[in-house]
Design a protein around this nucleic acid. Structure first.
Lengths: 208, 208
DNA sequence: AAATAAAGTTTCCTTTTGGAAACTTTTGCT
DNA sequence: AGCAAAAGTTTCCAAAAGGAAACTTTATTT
């Protein structure tokens, strides 16, 4: 497979867009800290005692008057018993579109290519941790398109019907039949080839 | 369903343990930064240009001679196109057990309960972002066990066979047949009931 | 409503960071 | 090896962070 095809087949750009919770958003650290502190019901003085940072320093950080050092931030996170990503997480990044999404059989968003037919599932829901797909892998022989697919994240796939061979770096190819599943690191070069007479059908989910 | 059953059925503790990448580990920021920079193939000078931080400053940060300010860290993450959690992630938390795991049909790790029969998939691989399961939901009526299941993370499920009803808070119950799928926020109370004569079979994946 | 206490902000000063340039070490070349 | 260029470190100083205490604002009590 060429790079171009890679794009077609694995809409990884879409995947990452959906995932990319952490945009290049200007993080309002002070605001966030104040939120956390008040939600813990702490005064500056109490927070000061817990973190070992001066009351004044905390005040200045909350009002964006100073930019805390990494050291200070560690004292903050240790003292307040929070983890660092929490400090940077946008306050409540919740799905705007809802909390549930049903996709009926054959009603996913189509994504056809020469050898694959992808169906994106649960497309109504944004900011998902996972991206589910259902794909049809057309019967074909192991031809010239023999290039690894490689992208960020992890993938899980299960064969719904047909038979295919899962090729990957570092491992011997394996045959997968209906009901078999694989979990793998997608950074590791990988590739699927249908080996049965009929087309193979799989369900797969990515997360990064 | 009681809380006890919840534990049985949804091994959510296991899930979160598996996920818990961010331990209370003492973060060696300098070391980590150097790793990232070199893995990007950048010299201090190049990194300096990309980030807008002085060559000397970068050097001092890498050698833990100074503790960068939050401002400096933002320049770092923006300039090097990484996100902040990456900076704090333990250096290369990679699956020790491998990068691929095949689970053959009916060969997952069993987890039987009264009304469900769970099969954990890809159990060889640790530190996964997702937890895949295959489950059999026994035919039964909508009985006393009518309590929401609720836990952290998101879930995706697809019906392999049979027919069931997906109950959840905020939404009307929906019937799901073979091939249908749902993606939902697992913090929202949810529950599955088989409504067909035969047992229903589903594949589901969680991530948090 | 005045007095008091508590919470938060600002000032002032010391310590530390961040940048320019000098210096040292490493790498590449003839 | 010996030289040159590149990469990395250290020095020195200006700028910014962090802490103690003074000050202001916001609650609480009488």
């Amino acid at each position: 497979m060429t790079d171009q095809q890679h794009q077609d087949i694995y809409p990884s750009m879409t995947i990452s867009t959906d995932q990319q919770t952490q945009k290049i958003a200007p993080i309002k650290l002070g605001e966030r800290l104040k939120e956390i502190r008040t939600s813990l019901g702490l005064t500056l003085e109490e927070a000061s005692q817990k973190t070992g940072l001066a009351r004044s320093t905390l005040s200045k950080i909350e009002n964006e008057q100073i930019s805390p050092t990494f050291q200070a931030m560690q004292k903050l996170t240790n003292g307040l018993q929070i983890n660092i990503p929490q400090l940077f997480a946008a306050p409540k990044q919740v799905n705007t579109t809802g909390r549930r999404d049903i996709t009926r059989k054959e009603e996913g968003k189509a994504h056809p290519t020469s050898t694959y037919e992808h169906e994106l599932l649960a497309t109504q829901l944004t900011n998902k941790k996972m991206m589910p797909f259902k794909s049809l892998i057309r019967a074909r022989d192991f031809d010239a398109y023999a290039d690894w697919i490689r992208h960020d994240g992890e993938e899980f796939l299960l064969v719904l019907s047909g038979e295919l061979t899962f090729f990957s770096e570092y491992y011997e190819p394996v045959n997968l039949k209906e009901g078999d599943s694989v979990y793998y690191d997608a950074n590791m070069g990988h590739m699927l080839v249908s080996v049965s007479e009929e087309d193979a059908s799989i369900i797969w989910v990515t997360a990064s």
